[in-house]
Amino acid sequence: MLSDITIGQFFPGNSVLHRIDPRVKLALTFIYIVAVFIPRNWWGLGLAVAALIGAALLSRLPARLLLKGLKPVLPLIVLTSIINLFYVDGTVLWHWWIFRITWEGIATAAFIAIRILCLIAGTSLLTYTTSPTTLTDALERLLSPLRVIRVPVHEIAMMMTIALRFIPTLIEETDKIMSAQKARGADMESGGLMQRVRALIPVLIPLFISSFRRAYELATAMECRCYHGGEGRTRMKQLHMRSGDYVALLLMALLIAALFVLNTQFPKVI
């Protein structure tokens, strides 16, 4: 049951989006997150959404998959929408006791809901098309200038690599410990919330202890293989920028320019 969890949710493929240099993809995603906050009117927002849909089509991933990724944020969207709906002043459409719905309120709520959806869809497009290891690798290389101000970039990347490596191992182990405790008569399925949380303690303690043992053994194995931090370390897989990567960056620059232009051309909504 626990093995259904797939962290990072990577879907292998060979589309244009899969092949973009991970550093570029990571940077583009961050830029896009910022870019979503540029539009002040529907035209701008429409362009941002169109760009995202274009990228999604290029990824050749099933639409169902992309929409499924948006489901967990629905409560957040509903909540922000309700707040916006009731708290924005303007032309009153409907009024009851202290509640008022304004035309501007509806517009703001919709605008922000679409913004949030763009943010989530944009970042999930990154994780869907990039393997976690490449992503970590890209992060290490992109952040490497920060070493100058003593940010332990290599150590952070190594920690992420090891975490990704051990997630399936620890999930497997959790399953094993749960079975072992069930075999000894532990009841994990019944009772209220507190009772169930308490039932997890005999699972978590052995899991912690064995994790520390694993960590110690892994450290030994890494030292045996001459690991001594990021100093003087090379990488087998080198990243090279190709023409497609430059095209992607150019398109993003054009998008941002267009968003600013649209802001000046049309009246603002929010």
Partner: peptide, 27 residues
């Protein structure tokens, strides 16, 4: 002894590359 606790990377070839990478060998 424990095969699980001595593999560092998720992908087989990246794990094998770990040693020579530490030694600073050319890619």
């Amino acid at each position: 002894q424990n095969p699980d606790n001595q593999l560092v990377s998720t992908i087989v070839e990246e794990d094998v590359a770990f040693g020579p990478e530490n030694l600073g060998v050319e890619p």
